[in-house]
Amino acid sequence: MAAISRDEVANLARLARISMSDAELDHLAGEMDVILGAVARVQEVAGADVPPTSHPLAVSNVTRDDVVTPSLTPEQALSGAPASSEQRFKVPKILGEE
């Protein structure tokens, strides 16, 4: 049985706002299935004595002191924006959401 279905790939694409053609979906569903299969093999190797990890480094509590550092100027902050107005980022209206 496939690890990921074509419908699941379509759903992921929708959540990631990536538009995909039927052909692309067919193709990717197959490829992702291979990737997931490879990951599943690694999972088999990890025994109960291996704790799950989310980070390659065995460190914790890396923090910074609560000190203010200089920010960008508004001009710098907005310099990469496709559109701006009133010193703010201008984005298209948001539909169907509140």
Binding site: E86, Q87, R88, F89, K90, V91, P92, K93, I94, E98
Partner: peptide
């Protein structure tokens, strides 16, 4: 309000 807005301006 969001409904009927033409565009949105963001302050981060």
């Amino acid at each position: 309000r969001i409904h009927g807005a033409d565009y949105s301006l963001l302050d981060y």
